[in-house]
Simulated assay, not measured.
Amino acid sequence: MVTLPPIAPMLASPGRLPLPGGDDRWAVETKQDGQRVLARLPGDGTALFRSRSGENITSAYPELQALGEEFRGAPAILDGEIVALDESGRADFGRLESRMGLVRSPAAVVGRAARRAPVHLVLFDVVFLGADSLLTAPYAERRHALESLELSGACWSVPAAVVGSSARALEATRAAGLEGIVCKRLTSRYEPGVRSRSWIKIRNLVTTDAVIGGWTPGRGRLTGLPGALLLGQRHEGRLRYVGSVGTGWSERERADLSALLSVAATTDCPFTPVPLITGAHWVLPRLVGEVTYATRTRAGYLRHPSWHRLRPDLAPEDIA
Rank of each mutant, 00 (worst) to 15 (best):
R254Q: 15
A255K: 15
A255S: 15
D256F: 02
D256P: 07
D256T: 13
D256G: 04
D256I: 10
D256R: 06
L257K: 09
L257D: 07
L257Q: 02
L257P: 04
S258C: 13
S258E: 02
S258W: 11
A259T: 03
A259S: 07
A259M: 14
L260N: 01
L260V: 03
L261G: 06
L261K: 01
L261H: 02
L261Y: 07
L261M: 08
S262K: 00
V263L: 09
V263I: 01
V263H: 09
V263F: 10
A264P: 05
A264H: 06
A264I: 01
A265M: 06
A265P: 03
A265T: 05
A265V: 08
T266L: 03
T266E: 01
T266I: 00
T266M: 00
T266R: 06
T267R: 08
T267F: 06
D268Y: 11
D268E: 15
D268A: 01
D268V: 03
C269R: 13
C269E: 03
P270Q: 01
P270L: 01
P270M: 03
P270D: 07
F271K: 03
F271Y: 10
T272F: 08
T272V: 13
T272Y: 12
P273T: 10
P273V: 04
P273S: 08
P275K: 07
P275Q: 07
P275V: 02
P275L: 11
P275R: 06
L276H: 11
I277S: 09
I277T: 15
T278R: 13
T278S: 10
T278F: 04
T278V: 12
T278N: 12
T278C: 05
T278I: 14
T278Q: 15
G279L: 05
G279F: 01
G279W: 04
G279S: 11
A280G: 12
A280V: 12
A280Q: 12
A280T: 06
A280H: 14
H281K: 12
H281I: 12
H281R: 09
H281Y: 12
H281C: 07
W282M: 02
W282Y: 02
W282N: 00
V283S: 07
V283R: 01
V283Y: 03
L284P: 03
L284D: 09
L284T: 05
L284V: 14
L284K: 14
P285C: 11
P285A: 07
P285I: 05
P285H: 12
P285E: 00
R286M: 04
R286L: 14
R286Y: 00
R286T: 06
R286W: 12
L287M: 13
L287K: 13
L287C: 12
L287I: 11
L287W: 05
L287N: 09
V288F: 12
